[in-house]
Design a protein around this nucleic acid. Structure first.
Lengths: 336, 336
DNA sequence: GTGAAAGCGCTAACAA
DNA sequence: TTGTTAGCGCTTTCAC
């Protein structure tokens, strides 16, 4: 059985009390240099490692932070996680990553598990299928520090980071218009997501600014967020079967952008016939065929900012009541 | 401060002893139905959740398993993780995911952290840069259940799952030969990885079977495993600048396959001139241009099998001494 | 059927 | 400078 050395073991072996050992190991000022030396040496010899579980139980502090994302396989999230880690490790925190696969049920379970495992705080990007936020609100009211990133919600007052989704959508739509497209369809994610609506607004504003009528029949919600390819393919098929069919598609969600490209390929559509622009943080987006113009979010930076906010919350001596929502700009990459 | 209800709170409120409450909550046979009802009802009312930290400390058992992979952004690993989760959740285990970014140092830290956080077992795919496995060996000798997947090592005797890398490499190489290619270069990962050498062997066997001379100058190790694009681009550039240059490339690593494709595109190479086959579990490999034939591993299944092995180790009443290494076959997808 | 007490590994008052 | 004690939340003998 796996049984590491404990402080008690050391105390016993060295004929000291556990508290002396504990203090010596943490370089307490009260302990004589001599004792420290002996303790540290022996601890090293028996490969002593402090037990974080016991520490957590004692201190209600674990120096670990929980990360909850919809899908690890989505580059945007793995990039954001890398950003979180880059700062967290440096500051002595560990990260515990879980994914929800966009399931509200899984999200609830994971969040509770993390909270009970006494993470010091939570970084979360909401599942597309969550509509009841009360479990998070309760935890937050009970004092668990939470920071939202990317897929944020209004109901809870705390720090948040997200992209400038409005401008991102506006610019992408505008780029399509500028290449002469006039009938621009929109493929979007689940409507309960904040980002879905903000991006819709950006799209509509671009149309309005260029005096292009907004047509509801050109809007398709793929509420499974690209997890279900066929949902997207059907949407694309329907759009392209319309009598007055679109000459461009703006895709307001990462995963759906890829599915849309695949649908166009599978349906053998001529790339000249239909232009695509969409949000994407895929690291191979430049190699895709048919190609698309894409809006890239600053995922890594977003992760960094989110964790910095969280650490501020965690390490603050006094309760924080002034919260900020940071908005990062996006980059538009046009097809060459 | 975040402060959930404890057994003590319930005991106090209900004028019972903590032990009674504890037994009632776990449906102990000694407790009267009546008391149970009262306790359970009250527990629900105050949203009592047992504290896994305290349980871990007490039981040395956490019902959570640690997963250590090189890179979440690599589809192969996110697919494998999804496989692990599919079984683990069902059996009542949580997963704690960490990534090493192929750093030996990070791997050491993460593994120790997980071990000390008393995960019940470890699922690991080794970092490309690790050459000293003693830290794992120690943990394993101390009784921590460990299962290796994909990037396995020989030094530790336990359950392992990996792909049939030999055949995968053989088949991919053979497919290139069958389309008339005779000068087939090899782009491979760090040589300390087991998979690197097995795939090299498969490649060499295919050459031998078809009486094609093996030329060491056509072999390039990209020891950073595709994390460094320029390493790959340079290798490709060098290969294609050779007087007797290759007419095909076989890439024996997931990330490097993508980098190789990108290099060919950036260097403006004619796809007819140089054929590419490579290992890849990218979920967009079918949309890449230039296109490649690819060997796909059964990542999801591998995750499932790995966790089943691990649970067998964890839940076995008696020490297990007979170990198995399972080898999954791969699928070759040819360019249409 | 229920309670008291000890202990998992650690730390922090309080004593000495 | 070092030791004693209590307690974090929980379970589990052992009493009653």
């Amino acid at each position: 059985m796996y049984k590491p050395a404990t402080i008690k073991d050391i105390a016993l072996a060295l004929q000291l009390s556990p508290s002396t050992v504990s203090r010596a190991l943490r370089d307490g000022y009260e302990i004589s240099e001599e004792t420290k030396k002996i303790v540290v040496a022996y601890a090293k010899q028996v490969n002593y490692k402090s037990n974080p579980i016991a520490l957590s139980l004692k201190n209600k502090r674990s120096y670990s932070i929980g990360i909850v994302v919809p899908e690890l396989a989505n580059s945007f999230f793995s990039q954001a996680i890398a950003g979180v880690e880059s700062i967290a490790y440096e500051k002595g925190y560990h990260t515990i990553i879980t994914q929800t696969h966009d399931s509200a049920e899984r999200e609830l379970i994971n969040v509770n598990h993390l909270a009970q495992r006494s993470v010091d705080g939570l970084l979360i990007s909401m599942s597309a299928q969550t509509s009841d936020y009360s479990f998070l609100k309760n935890l937050h009211d009970d004092g668990l520090p939470i920071v939202f990133f990317d897929r944020i919600i209004d109901d809870i007052d705390t720090f948040k980071v997200t992209s400038d989704n409005f401008s991102g959508a506006y610019n992408a739509t505008e780029s399509l218009i500028k290449t002469g497209r006039k009938k621009i369809a929109l493929l979007s994610n689940a409507p309960q997501l904040s980002i879905t609506n903000t991006r819709l607004a950006g799209y509509m504003k671009a149309l309005a600014d260029y005096h292009i009528p907004f047509r509801t029949e050109l809007i398709r919600n793929c509420s499974k967020g690209g997890n279900d390819y066929h949902e997207v393919e059907n949407a694309v098929k329907e759009l392209l079967a319309m009598p007055d069919k679109p000459d461009a598609i703006f895709v307001s969600s990462d995963r759906i952008s890829i599915s849309c490209i695949r649908a166009l390929k599978n349906l053998n559509f001529n790339p000249k016939e239909i232009a695509v622009a969409g949000f994407s943080n895929s690291d191979v987006v430049d190699l895709l065929q048919p190609s698309l113009s894409y809006v890239r979010q600053k995922a890594f930076e977003m992760g960094q900012i989110a964790v910095e906010m969280l650490l501020k919350l965690i390490e603050s001596k006094y309760p924080i009541t002034e919260f900020e929502t940071k908005v990062l700009n996006t980059e538009l990459h046009l097809i060459k």
